[in-house]
Amino acid sequence: MTNRAIKYRAYPTTEQSVMFAKTFGCCRKVYNLMLADKIESYKSTGKFVTVTPAKYKKDYPYLKEVDSLALANKQLDLQEAFRNCFSKSRKKNNRFPRFKSAKHTRKSYTTNNQHGTVAISDHSIKLPKIGHVKAIIHRKPVDNWILKSATISQESDGKFYISVLFEIADTINTYVADTTNAIGLDYASDGLYVDNNGNVGTNHKYYRESHDKLAKAQRKLSRMQGSGKHEIKSNNYIKQLRKVNKIHRHISNQRLDNLHKNLHSAFGWRHK
């Protein structure tokens, strides 16, 4: 069995957006509490104590308002972080788990599908504690795919996405190389690549094209209340920050789209 994920753009209501924000915050809170208790127990006993999110629900009643599976997955994330840190089999050294930051940590959480708690319909995705969230279902799963989990995330420009994970059966495909249909590619600074037939790809300078617009938005942001260190962020500052992040996101999407089109052009791929 293998896993495959499909990412959908979500359009939650105001109440659902608030619930997403609460879940992001509660997941971060639980992760930091569990990490703090593990560090404290190691200082006093020399061992990392095992903790669960249920331990903190009495002292922090608002944790009961969000999806319990989202909190449980944060416990698994912390356990995985400790395994990666102390594993001797890994070639890459991993740092000790760090506390989650409300400012820098990516806003996301994962919930599991239990007897239909996560489901996809024609125009929405059903989630625990949230209900049906409007989404663009640009691709539907095959009937024999098993829905395993859903990861809800919010990007820096404020847009929400839901990545749904499916378990699918392995299919063995036998491919025979076509030696008559080969192409040679070389790097070209002015066009990303050049092939052996002399065709040159496109490499637009999207950042330069949007530089003036981005610089103007950043200058406006720097003059607002909240731009200074330890200064309270005003509502206007937050709105302008989202505009700046939206421009950055647009440039990133342009680059990815251009790269995708170049791959299709170079290798002759076609959409099915």
Score class of each variant (00 low, 15 high):
residue 119 A to F: 04
residue 119 A to L: 08
residue 121 S to L: 08
residue 122 D to G: 08
residue 123 H to R: 11
residue 123 H to G: 06
residue 123 H to V: 15
residue 125 I to T: 04
residue 125 I to C: 03
residue 126 K to Q: 12
residue 126 K to D: 07
residue 126 K to M: 11
residue 127 L to T: 07
residue 127 L to Y: 09
residue 129 K to L: 10
residue 129 K to F: 11
residue 129 K to N: 13
residue 130 I to F: 00
residue 130 I to S: 04
residue 131 G to V: 01
residue 131 G to K: 05
residue 132 H to S: 13
residue 132 H to R: 12
residue 133 V to H: 03
residue 133 V to G: 03
residue 134 K to N: 08
residue 135 A to W: 02
residue 135 A to N: 02
residue 136 I to D: 12
residue 137 I to E: 00
residue 137 I to C: 00
residue 138 H to A: 06
residue 138 H to K: 05
residue 138 H to L: 02
residue 139 R to E: 13
residue 139 R to L: 12
residue 141 P to L: 00
residue 142 V to L: 10
residue 142 V to E: 14
residue 142 V to N: 04
residue 142 V to P: 02
residue 143 D to Q: 09
residue 143 D to W: 01
residue 143 D to F: 05
residue 144 N to T: 14
residue 145 W to R: 07
residue 146 I to N: 10
residue 147 L to R: 03
residue 148 K to L: 12
residue 148 K to G: 08
residue 151 T to N: 08
residue 151 T to A: 05
residue 151 T to P: 14
residue 152 I to M: 06
residue 152 I to C: 11
residue 152 I to A: 05
residue 153 S to Q: 02
residue 156 S to A: 14
residue 156 S to C: 11
residue 156 S to Y: 11
residue 156 S to P: 09
residue 158 G to D: 05
residue 160 F to S: 03
residue 160 F to E: 03
residue 160 F to Q: 01
residue 161 Y to R: 02
residue 161 Y to M: 06
residue 162 I to C: 06
residue 162 I to H: 01
residue 163 S to M: 04
residue 163 S to L: 00
residue 165 L to E: 01
residue 165 L to M: 08
residue 166 F to Y: 14
residue 166 F to V: 09
residue 167 E to M: 15
residue 167 E to P: 15
residue 167 E to C: 15
residue 168 I to S: 11
residue 169 A to I: 13
residue 169 A to E: 15
residue 170 D to L: 15
residue 172 I to E: 07
residue 173 N to H: 11
residue 173 N to W: 04
residue 173 N to K: 13
residue 174 T to F: 13
residue 174 T to K: 06
residue 175 Y to P: 07
residue 175 Y to C: 06
residue 175 Y to Q: 01
residue 179 T to D: 08
residue 180 T to H: 13
residue 181 N to T: 07
residue 182 A to E: 15
residue 182 A to H: 06
residue 183 I to T: 14
residue 184 G to Q: 07
residue 187 Y to K: 07
residue 188 A to N: 15
residue 188 A to I: 01
